[in-house]
């Protein structure tokens, strides 16, 4: 088991190294340089490039970057805040995005579980149909459509909640972004839960348990829920990360100063180090969450052997 975990972590680290390499190569192909402003002369640009080490060959720059990164230094920003460390820039924005993503995941999961359970218990009633309809909408439409609708009707027309994020109202101004971001996860989880629960409720061991005279509550909580909900865990991790990286548009609509809007402004100003830092952080979270989910899944459901089915 421990050997397996160690192996998985090593593979993940290797993958991360290659991802960093791919990102680095991609960025070096970017058209234009971060200093390509009309106000600068060729000599000034050369001085600036020498100052940031951009005049060295690509591979050497890559290894310098990796060496610095291992010491927690992700370089400095060129344009957003000149010479400001990228790590601090990201750190300031990360928590807002993380808060937004986590809350949206929690809200979406709770609502989704509730809807999915209701739909599976009240199978083939109007409640089931309504839930299915809601989840089709949530799965099909991008989060920003909900964001636009909410900010127009609830924020602007009815004037109930602020449509722009402000530090003065950290809670009320986050309600609309969280709501619009949680629609996708809600739909996905409701769909998943419904399918799994219907599967479990119709299984032979549930029939046996019922025949033996177990009360409905024990039947449901101890036997159905446990088996029906484990698969839901697998979607949670990747969902959180894709929520955080996918919230760029929603963040822009509500002017939330998060990682998404940081990446957008870095993209628009050719601020390579910031783009690299943010992209790498997203990848890191993605890979870590996949790993955690994989390992957790083996602990929760021993039928799935983590070490690749070698157990006899």
């Amino acid at each position: 088991m421990w050997k397996y975990i160690a192996k998985r972590i090593l593979i993940a680290l290797g993958t991360l190294f290659f991802i960093l390499f791919v990102l680095f190569i991609l960025l070096s192909f970017m058209p234009g340089s971060p200093f390509n402003q009309l106000t600068l002369t060729a000599e000034q640009i050369a001085v600036l490039e020498a100052k940031y080490g951009l005049d060295k060959p690509l591979m050497i720059r890559f290894f310098i970057y990796v060496k610095n990164m291992l010491q927690g230094d992700f370089g400095v920003s060129y344009n957003i805040i000149a010479d400001y460390p990228v790590i601090d820039l990201i750190g300031a924005k990360f928590w807002i995005s993380a808060k937004l993503g986590l809350t949206a995941t929690v809200v979406g999961t709770v609502l989704g579980l509730f809807l999915g359970l209701v739909a599976s218990i009240k199978h083939n009633t109007w409640l089931d149909t309504g839930t299915t309809f809601l989840s089709v909408l949530g799965v099909s439409l991008p989060g920003y459509v909900f964001a636009l609708a909410l900010s127009y009707f609830i924020g602007f027309k009815m004037n109930l909640l602020p449509i722009v994020y402000s530090t003065k109202h950290p809670v009320s101004s986050l309600i609309l972004p969280v709501l619009s971001m949680s629609m996708g996860p809600m739909a996905q989880i409701a769909r998943y839960t419904r399918t799994e629960m219907l599967d479990v409720l119709g299984s032979d061991y549930m029939l046996l348990a019922r025949t033996k005279g177990l009360s409905n509550r024990i039947l449901f909580i101890r036997h159905a829920l446990k088996n029906g909900l484990t698969p839901v865990i697998t979607v949670l991790g990747p969902m959180l990360v894709s929520l955080m990286s996918g919230s760029m548009v929603v963040e822009q609509i509500f002017s939330v100063p998060g990682m998404g809007s940081l990446l957008v402004s870095a993209v628009q100003t050719n601020d390579y180090n910031v783009v690299l830092g943010v992209s790498f952080l997203y990848s890191l979270m993605f890979i870590v969450s996949m790993l955690v989910v994989d390992l957790l899944y083996g602990v929760i459901d021993p039928r799935i052997s983590v070490s690749g089915g070698k157990k006899e």
Partner: peptide, 24 residues
């Protein structure tokens, strides 16, 4: 499969953003 894993480790929206930036 390793190549797929590496490509898949970067969120697809980020890859797309970078690719469009590179190619204008």
């Amino acid at each position: 499969q390793r190549i797929i894993e590496i490509l898949n480790g970067i969120p697809s929206l980020v890859v797309m953003t970078l690719m469009v930036m590179v190619m204008r």
